[in-house]
């Protein structure tokens, strides 16, 4: 074991506390400004609210009304939860199929999945959104289908890596017991995949919850998700209501931070595990 060296550790602790303050400060400053009147934000963001500038929850009311925040939150939740569930269920099955079926076609598509991870979204954004519109996928449910296609690359890749490490004998035993492939997958394989499932779910949640351009191009502002609602505040008017903006920023960050504080153990180990396999 490394022995404690108090002096160095005290210096490092001071540095870490200072850095933590730097990391939290931006969010804290936005929070402070969300309680100030809209004209006293841009020029003096670092001044605390006082009697003249404090407006209580006025900005929150304006922000929620101007952006349709509650419905945006609802749609974000709907699209994210459903997409992640669909991605986890179908890509884990596909990964198992790719590894165990031994088919050449499945192998080839695996390489295409991996390839799709590097291709920037701009390459397909125009053609994809045109195709999606003509197929009637420009709805929240359509988005779920689209996310399955874009999430396939990373998710299949990670599940394939894990399935390869599962000994075949376990599945063969289940076959002898009379299980059909669907039963084998759900009773034997899927439970073993759990650590990867958590990682895949976390990485996809972080991506879909925050995604702006894809839903904006596919359904525009008919069904706003949170990032679209925030950007809408800027685009919708000539000048931005800074008060409403601050309030909406706080409201977008809050659920993420709360979720993070509850699930941080899984999120951090999930991200670390994802990187090792990537």
């Amino acid at each position: 074991m490394e022995k404690r060296r108090p002096f160095i550790n005290i210096i490092l602790t001071v540095i870490l506390i200072a850095l933590s303050a730097v990391f939290i400060a931006p969010v804290f400053i936005v929070l402070l400004n969300s309680f100030k009147s809209k004209f006293s934000i841009s020029q003096t963001p670092f001044v605390l609210p006082n009697n003249d500038t404090f407006v209580a929850f006025q900005n929150y009311i304006t922000g929620i009304n101007d952006t349709g925040f509650l419905s945006a939150f609802g749609w974000s939740l709907f699209v994210t939860v459903l997409s992640v569930a669909v991605i986890v269920i179908f890509t884990s099955m596909a990964a198992w199929y790719i590894v165990r079926s031994g088919g050449r076609f499945a192998k080839l598509t695996y390489y295409l999945f991996v390839f799709s991870m590097i291709v920037p979204f701009q390459m397909v954004m125009f053609t994809m959104s045109k195709l999606a519109n003509s197929l009637g996928l420009d709805t929240p449910l359509g988005l779920v289908f689209i996310y399955l296609g874009f999430g396939a690359g990373l998710s299949v890749f990670m599940f394939v890596g894990f399935v390869k490490s599962i000994p075949l004998s376990i599945e063969e035993a289940a076959t002898i017991d009379g299980c059909n492939p669907m039963q084998i997958f759900y009773h034997v394989v899927f439970p073993i995949l759990k650590p990867t499932t958590v990682t895949v779910a976390i990485l996809n949640t972080m991506w879909i919850w925050n995604d702006y351009l894809l839903p904006y191009l596919v359904i525009g502002t008919d069904y706003k998700t949170l990032p679209i609602a925030v950007q809408y505040l800027k685009g919708g008017y000539g000048s931005v209501d800074m008060g409403a903006m601050m309030a909406v920023l706080v409201l977008s960050i809050l659920p993420v931070v709360v979720f993070y504080l509850f699930a941080q153990k899984y999120i951090i180990s999930g991200v670390a595990a994802g990187a090792v396999k990537g």
Binding site: S101, L112, V124, T127, M128, L131, L135, G149, F150, P181
Partner: peptide, 27 residues
């Protein structure tokens, strides 16, 4: 292997179809 391939419409097709429509064809 053959057993598994019989189930490809459930196991493999949904992901492949989504991938085909939103990535491969647009690409």
């Amino acid at each position: 292997n053959k057993q598994i391939r019989k189930y490809s419409p459930i196991l493999f097709l949904p992901v492949f179809l989504a991938f085909l429509i939103v990535f491969l064809i647009p690409f």
